[in-house]
Design a protein around this nucleic acid. Structure first.
Lengths: 259, 259
DNA sequence: CGTATCGTTGAACCATGTCAATGTCTGTGG
DNA sequence: CCACAGACATTGACATGGTTCAACGATACG
């Protein structure tokens, strides 16, 4: 039993460690639920919060604000995301989290959630898995921003979202993304102007186009071809249809010292 | 007692969740210890490993390798770091971890470490804290790479290392960093050539200079002035001399539903 | 119908990359 | 002790992707 929990927790077969359905009961009893409209904030930069949030439905983004007014979008949060675990590690950091669509989420006081871990250790492992999942996304973004030209960078970003879409709940067709060009720019370290130019090309090439305030993916195949996400990553994003892994059984550590 | 563990885990007062001293006994009994020389790898890209590593002494860096041969350095690992928690989430990712100096580290089979969490839940929270710590570093790096010009980017990077130095064990004076210009370039998304130019300026301005293969910080004050790390972050890096936090006590979650 | 928000377009500029050559140090083998 | 090779760092000339500035266009909303 223990071994099984460990195995399933480490090798996430689902899109995220937590499914939106189970979030309200994560602490054993029903959590507080709230909802917000597009543009509103779960928490604002500089605000000290002792809560952790779980997204039940909708899109949000967490970001950091700089003195000079610039904004760095770190992650796009979809249903199943746990928000605030990392943000609060360093107190006083100017991080915030705002909604892109209508968002329903639950609230866990930190102490309650972590207290629950003490009585239910497997929850701790799942939280580790969730934080790790976010870290993987950010590492990937870092590589993109550091080394890829704007075109690939944007394509990778959109492709990532396209792959994560199954978590969105609805598998719309065509898939549409509630992001402004300024959001994209702030996520990727570009200028809205340059995003505009690049997206213009995407439109010309029949890859993606704005419909109202949503960016619609017209041809996912073309998008995938422009993007440089490798296939195994794309699969992992989509819910870990990764090759099955022979998980080691939990057993006592071997004792040995350095010669 | 529980509340105390939760509190101390969440608001890390030390430089890292784990101290190098306690790493060998993390799983309850002495872990396997190994050591490597500069340039050798704890694990190589593409290698599938079911182990997690804890750095006891020395410097290492974890990185990702691309098809085109490029390398993205994600984090500089210092004593106390837990490596491989994130790397293995997505199997088959081309990530590796290599030594910058002689490194002593311990090895935990994943299943053993996570199995231990089941019997000692507080360990789970400490692992969460460690993963979160790394994530904060990467988010910061992302902001730098996305928005800062090369000069600030490099200054921030060096300043970060300078602040983390107390974890290095020896508080050398002057502080020296075992990184090649190519390492710095690969960490920050720059060209070694441009790093060279910028470091040349740093030398001219009496900020930092190479001595042998180590970059020595000559004037930490000047470095801090060039860098844009905010003060609270610098303190956090240095071991969380953060303002004390009134930690909430662990208590039952309030039950309430969305109206 | 005025105002706000977001996207588009063009022209000029510049931080950084690219290419290519040279310099410096260290260790090694004859 | 010298010759040589390998790994890094330095320097200069040139190319360019992306920014900046500035103006204009479209769409939505009260």
């Amino acid at each position: 039993m223990t071994a099984e929990i460990v195995r399933s927790t480490l090798h996430q077969k689902e899109g995220a460690p937590f499914s939106p359905d189970e979030l309200p009961n994560l602490c054993g009893r029903p959590a507080v639920l709230r909802q917000l409209s597009p543009g509103e904030e779960l928490f604002a930069p500089g605000e000290r919060s002792d809560d952790i949030y779980g997204i039940v439905s909708g899109w949000a983004y967490s970001y950091r604000l700089f003195d000079d007014g610039r904004r760095q979008i770190n992650t796009i949060e979809l249903p199943g995301s746990l928000i605030g675990v990392a943000s609060a590690a360093r107190d006083g950091a100017a991080v915030g989290c705002a909604c892109l669509t209508r968002v329903v989420y639950c609230v866990y006081p930190r102490a309650t959630l972590f207290g629950r871990v003490m009585s239910e250790p497997a929850l701790g492992l799942r939280i580790v898995a969730e934080v790790v999942r976010q870290e993987v996304l950010i590492r990937e973004r870092l590589s993109d921003v550091a080394r890829r030209p704007a075109r690939e960078r944007i394509a990778n970003f959109l492709h990532e979202l396209y792959c994560r879409r199954q978590i969105t709940g609805r598998m719309d067709r065509p898939f549409s993304i509630p992001l402004t060009q300024t959001h994209i720019a702030d996520a990727l370290g570009l200028t809205p102007i340059h995003v505009s130019r690049t997206l213009r090309e995407f439109k010309r090439d029949g890859v993606a186009n704005y419909v109202g305030h949503d960016l619609q993916i017209i041809d996912a195949g073309k998008l995938a071809r422009i993007s440089t996400l490798d296939e195994s990553y794309a699969r992992w994003l989509g819910g870990g249809a990764d090759a099955p892994i022979a998980a080691a059984e939990a057993r006592p550590a071997m004792a040995a010292r350095l010669a």
